[in-house]
Structures are given as C-alpha cells and as structure tokens.
Design a protein around this nucleic acid. Structure first.
Lengths: 333, 333
DNA sequence: CATCAAACTGGAAACGTTTACCTAGATCGC
DNA sequence: GCGATCTAGGTAAACGTTTCCAGTTTGATG
C-alpha cells in the first residue's frame, strides 16, 4: 500500500506538502495541490489512520460498549449513537460487554487502548466505584441507562421508578383495582425500580400490590408467557397487568388470549419500552415509552462535547411517557 | 497517559523488555516479568493500539459496512458478525453505508484507512465493477447478501429466486389458485428475484401471476398496509398473498383483518426473512427463513480466514427454507 | 580456570504521519 | 536598488510500539 512518501516522490514534492494537501492545509500552490491529488488517486493512496492517530494523539472515533445487538431495544440505542457518530464523521467502534463484569471491563479496556476520542458505555454489571474510576480517568466517557450520583453529569438515565408509578396511576384512573405485575427476574436495578414505583403508586392510593400478584420471568416473550401461566393459575381475578417490558407483554397477551381472556376487554395489559414490536402486536400495545434513541443520541453528543473540552449541562434524566394504544380498557367512564 | 517508556523507566528495564512482557514473549526473567507487570498496573498503563498497528502493519479489527442498525434484519446480521469478531478477539468497526453509492464508498474507504484486518461489506448501491475492484485490492474483503459471479468465492448470498419459487409451490400444493403478491418498490435485485421466482413457479404450474395481482410498496409495515389496500380495492378475490418481507406482511395482515378478512381462514399470508417479529404476530407468520445470522457468521469467518492467508471454499450460497406457522391455510386435504 | 552455549537484556531502526521551524525566492514600498 | 515582508516549500523530530541484532551474564563443561 502506497505511503505518503511514495506520493511525495511521485509528485516531486516533500512529504510535508503532501500532508498539507491531505489535510487541506494552506501554503501549497494550486499547481502542486492539483498534481498531488492526481498522484494520490493514481497510486490509490489512502492515509494510514493509525499513523495519524499516533502522531496527533487522538483518533476520530467513538466507542460504544453495550450488550446485545440483536435485541431491538439495544439496536435502537446503537442506532442513535451511530447516527451521531456519522454526523460528526467519527468512526464507530463497538464492543460487547455481554452482561458480565469481566467482559464489560474488557470491552472498556479495549476501547481505551484504541484511544477512542469519546466513549458511551452501557454497563449493568460493573460496580459504581469501578465506573467512577473509569470516568475520572477518562474525561470523555458517558454512561447510558445508569445513574451514579457522584458522576451524575456524565449519566444519561431514565427514571424507571416514575415509569412504574405512572403506569399504576394510569390504570387506577381508569378504575382498575385488581392489578397484577409481571416483572423481570434479573437482579439489576431497572425492574426493581419499576416495581417499586408501581408499588408506591398503588400503596398511596390505598390499594397495595400483594406479593402474590407479582410474577418474575426472563425478560422476553417466553418469560412473559410462563409468568402469565403462573399468574393465571393463582386465579386472582386481576383486571390489569403491568409488565416489565414489551417483549414480555407480547407473551402475556399471547397466553391470556390462548386461555380465553380477551385483551383488553377482560384484562388490560401495559408494557414498557415502546420498542418497534409494540406497534406490531394485536391489540397494539399500550406502553410506557423509553426514549432510548433520543437518550443515546444525547449521550453520544455529550461524549463528543466532553472530548473537545466543552462542558455539558448537569441533568440528563429522562422520564417515561405513556403511549396509549389498544391494550388497556377503562372500567368506568 | 503512561507510555512504554514510562513503564521501562519505572521498572528499571528497557522498553524492549517491557514490550516482551506485554506480548507474553519469551526471554525475560521471572523477576523482571513480575516487576514490569506490577509497574504496569501501578501506572495504569495501556498499550497504544495505534502505535502497535503502525509498527506491526496490521490491527486486530474487523470492519463491517452496512445500513440500518435499527432494522431487526440488519441488527441480526450485525449480531452475527459481532459474535465472530468477539470470538476471535477482534475489535469491531461499523460504518453505515445508508443505501447510497457515495456513502457506501465512503464507508469502505474509511475502514480501509483504518487498515482493518478483515472486512464484511453489505452493499446494494455500488456497481459490480466497483466492488470487484475493491475486492481485488483488498484480499480480506467479503460481500454479504450479494452475488457477483467474478468474485463468487468472496460472496455469501441467498438464493432469492429459489425462495420465491418455494413460496409459490407451497401455496399451490395447498390448493391455492388465486395468488397475489406484495413486493418492495425498491429497484434492487432482492425483490426482483423473489418475484421472478414466484412468477416462474406459478407459470410452470399453468397458473401465471397476473400483473394486476402485484402491488409494490415500501418494505415496511406501512408499505404493506398501503399495498394491501390497493390490492383489496381491485377485488381480485385472492386466497393467498406472497409478501416481500415480514414487516410488510404485518401490515398486510393488519389491513386484511381491519377489512373483515380472517387470516388464514379467508386469506393466507406468507412472509419472507423470518425476523423476530414473525413470532410475535398473530396469527404467527408462516414465512421463508433467511438464515442471515448464520450467513453473517460465515462471512465474518471467511474474512478473517482470508486475512490470515487461508483460502476459503468456493460456494457460499444459502437457500431460504419454509417455516410453517399459522398464517397459511390448506384449501383442500 | 578457560571456554561456550544458553538465557536474558538493551540499543536502535522502523512503521506513516503531522508540524514546528527554517530557507529561498518573490514582491513591494520607498 | 535595497531591506522588509510574504509565501511556498522543505527538513527533521516526534508519536509509541515491535523486533532485529548485538551485547552481557550465568552456569556448565572440558
């Protein structure tokens, strides 16, 4: 592969001049500029990004650590980051953290070795302390979907608790009194907070959520199916089910339907996330919207700003909003 | 950020020795090895990947060019490539080609500047000739979802025509005689070939597909809805519809249902791709499976093999297979 | 005790750029 | 015609590694 020296030799100029042409720098005559450009295409010259990064001490890249490309939620997240990277002409580097502390650490380390200019990290497995340490060592790192008070200005996060509350309040406002919940069995904070929010809203209204009305399962369609089967066999007579996410909700609806319950006439179902899926389901899913693409875009913008020394605003909290579709019915009014 | 020299100085050895420790090379005493390792963690030293890539003339990275992270189909593709990259400890670089020739070219160029070790490219906009030129200049580049005879051994592709044929034959074997088609309005080869396959199968059976029974639309839910509305208003009395992909099929089913047609009792629907979605729809979608993850994994493996000088086998053609679910009904038998 | 190989260690060149600094010529005002 | 001022262009150092080659120990052997 041709180097800058080859180009310089072939064009009869010095490497400095070629470099100036590459970077659209000043101090080169139109004649030489044209000549060099011609030689570059003749030789199929392509500047070596690594050499550049080495000498300039920074490479125009944006690193992203997260887990599952295949999951629509994460795909949307990645899509948002990619969009910003593209707008800023930054190369996107992706590292999968799976959801294990070792892998997440490994993924961050790899990206740091690449000397990424900016970093967006989705970590569920690493401890607050470890993430704080990384953040301090790396001024252009931003966390997404996580809230750590000590570095709050570098966190873009969703108020999961408020989402749980809102879902509960909404159902109660429609007259629902017997409410059940299908949650995720993973011990991360998101399901925990959503559930707490729901419990709080119901408790404040004097209709506390009984533990027996809560089922846990894998946060996917099958998990939703199993949890709903368990719920139904307890014969609690719930008129509404608050579900951890849309994928589980699809399983919930599916099992309800198979067992002769009509959604929403007999049982209302409310999801969480508002991923693509929710519009494809029948009935179309009423759900709490997780504006993940917007959040991902902000996180990417923030990381890029930080990398160029700009400061960013303090609060990056988002709140889930209710999206009314067809899976919830009013019991009165 | 600490460099190898800092480590060498702090450990009282030469940079050569530190380098050997970093690379687990031989010829360094246990004493020094331990000492250097200790200093590395003390200083928070991280080798500079760019410097490494520069001197070794290759960087352990796998580049991927494709379009829409947010689309479940492409997300699955990316997921497959990512999996292989991870297994081989390769950093994944992603560039979006949108679906424009300029952007696709730009995306490939950027990746080449990064001196990626291997390259997987999904291109629909660039010409055969241009891709052939890239492939020749770059021995470790593999094309996915495209078949160019001159460089067939570097193409991983799906036989779209065979898929169209199979869908048609299947419906006819169930007694369907009035078959309609909802296709994509994009002028790329995939929809064209699927349609041709379908037409051929029907023609061979003596029940050619009338042009009036073909509608085109955007390859998404809305496109499927619009196309179906158009189809219905022609009042052709079709008992089955072959649809370009699953997203469109969801729109097709939705409009059919809204207009009082039961699926599959009144009208059968068959999709294409078998993305996640098809299992969430009601009725569950019968579709032609596009084994994109498997194909993406093979493409990535191939690119990596080629980059290390190994040769790869000749034929990488995949064939869509029928996945029977609940959206198709037998008219007899 | 001299010799030799093996094991370890260090010096220095090289990778492909960017850029600070310098030089030579051209232009200009007087 | 002369110094001052510009301008285009070149020289060379630097970035952080790897690795070849040439030492220098060390311990065993004759």
């Amino acid at each position: 592969m041709a180097t800058i020296k080859d180009v310089a030799a072939a064009a009869g100029v010095s490497v400095a001049t070629v470099s100036r042409v590459i970077n659209n720098g000043p101090k080169v005559s139109d004649k030489n500029r044209a000549k060099v450009k011609q030689v570059m295409v003749d030789l199929g010259y392509r500047p070596n990004a690594n050499a550049r990064a080495l000498v300039t001490q920074s490479s125009p890249t944006l690193g992203l650590v997260f887990s599952e490309l295949t999951d629509p939620f994460f795909a949307t997240l990645a899509g948002g980051v990619e969009k910003i990277a593209r707008e800023h002409h930054r190369q996107l580097l992706i590292s999968n953290g799976l959801v294990s502390a070792d892998t997440e650490r490994q993924a961050i380390e790899t990206l740091l070795e690449q000397r990424c200019e900016a970093l967006v990290v989705h970590s569920k497995a690493l401890s607050d302390d470890e993430l704080i340490a990384y953040a301090e060592a790396n001024p252009a790192m931003v966390l997404i979907n996580r809230h750590i008070p000590q570095i709050a200005h570098r966190c873009v996060w969703l108020d999961n608790r408020a989402g749980g509350e809102a879902a509960g309040r909404y159902l109660m406002s429609l007259g629902h009194q017997k409410i059940a919940c299908v949650s995720s069995r993973y011990h991360i904070e998101d399901p925990q907070l959503r559930l707490e929010g729901l419990q709080q809203a119901l408790a404040e209204a004097g209709q506390p959520l009984a533990d027996i009305a809560i089922e846990h399962g894998d946060p996917n369609q099958t998990g939703g199916e199993v949890a709903t089967q368990n719920l139904l066999s307890k014969n609690l007579g719930a008129t509404a089910i608050v579900v951890y996410n849309d994928a589980m909700a699809s399983g919930v609806i599916s099992v309800l339907t198979d067992n002769g319950y009509r959604v929403p006439e007999d049982v209302s179902v409310i999801g969480f996330d508002d991923v693509l899926l929710s519009r494809y389901l029948r009935p179309k899913l009423t759900t709490m919207r997780y504006p993940i693409e917007m959040m991902a875009m902000e996180a990417a913008e923030m990381a890029l700003s930080l990398s160029s020394g700009k400061s960013v605003s303090d609060c990056h909290k988002y709140v889930p909003t209710l999206v009314k579709r067809d899976s919830v019915l009013a019991l009165r009014g």
